[in-house]
Design a protein around this nucleic acid. Structure first.
Lengths: 172, 172
DNA sequence: TTGATTGCAAAGCATTTGCATGCTA
DNA sequence: TAGCATGCAAATGCTTTGCAATCAA
């Protein structure tokens, strides 16, 4: 049986290492924020995560969440994503392989997908230009399968109100 | 010989049609802003375009540029692009086919490229999910060929200071 | 003990909105 | 003439920064 206490051990180690290498300090706030961040499956803004953290420890400030999310990004534990609404969302890699996004403009659902063929073609295009890519972002906006059905009869769903749920898939 | 006066005639017609269909009004500001927008080859923020417009007619306000750029986007004459610096850039289609972007994080150069194979694979992925895409955005960040050479010897170039130049290419 | 970290308040920025005035259709 | 468009100032929303107090190493 897998020990429950060992959850996020790897990630915690990564953060600690990054902190030590950079001459920074480990704090209870950073531990808590990382823990809660990894424990959710949504795409979160700093404000979103702040609300969650605040429930566990009301003394933690919004600014610290902003700063910590930046720190986690530097450590490679978080990735910034934009969905076109002007806010910055964060996602973690825990239980999620590298992927791209389809964003439903009706319900806000976010579908994660991955295509090794697309990745290969991207690299090929880059090398055509002598361009050395460090990271990339592929997003498709449109209407998801559910909303195509719903929109046909009723009026469009309350867009923007839904959380940015990570819909994981097995399709490659 | 091609008549010079006919420049942007098609685009002006598109804007006019959109304006009439929506029950809006044609104004000298909108004409001027479109003209100057199409006349540049950079990726422009509202502020950038405002500076250019302001030279020709100082009475035009920044707010109007913001609003007009939105209007041009609705009319299909402009496209919003983000390069990760928090600002919204706009590009036009005049003399530019649909394309994606590579962004050099050293000098800010933006390389436009197009891959029909990637487009096809995107559509394929979408249909796998019953997702009906309306538009997409593929961006790659990294170091362009020039900067790979320069960075090797000297310190990195003054990043962010460069304009978002559209480097057109013939590679498909 | 030293200097990084925190929380709060204030500042920054890009963008949007309210409103009186101007102008198009 | 009706009501859309404009320009200005003010407001908004997200994010960052200044600073005194706190805390990790």
């Amino acid at each position: 049986m897998v020990r429950k206490k060992a959850k996020f051990e790897v990630e915690k180690g990564i953060l600690l290492e990054h902190i030590q290498k950079a001459g920074l300090r480990r704090t209870s706030q950073r531990d808590l924020i990382l823990e809660i961040f990894l424990g959710t499956e949504d795409h979160l803004t700093s404000e979103d995560l702040y609300s969650l953290v605040h429930k566990k420890d009301p003394s933690v400030g919004l600014t610290t969440v902003y700063r910590t999310l930046k720190l986690l990004t530097e450590a490679g534990l978080a990735r910034e994503v934009g969905f076109g609404d002007g806010k910055t969302y964060y996602e973690h890699h825990y239980n999620h392989e590298h992927h791209d996004h389809m964003i439903c403009t009706e319900c806000g659902r976010v579908i994660e997908f991955f295509s090794p063929d697309i990745e290969a073609l991207q690299d090929e295009m880059a090398s055509n230009f002598g361009f050395r890519p460090t990271h990339h972002s592929l997003r498709m906006w449109g209407v998801c399968a559910d909303c195509q059905v719903n929109t046909a009869e009723s009026q469009s769903a309350p867009s923007g109100a839904q959380p940015r749920v990570r819909v994981k898939t097995a399709i490659n």
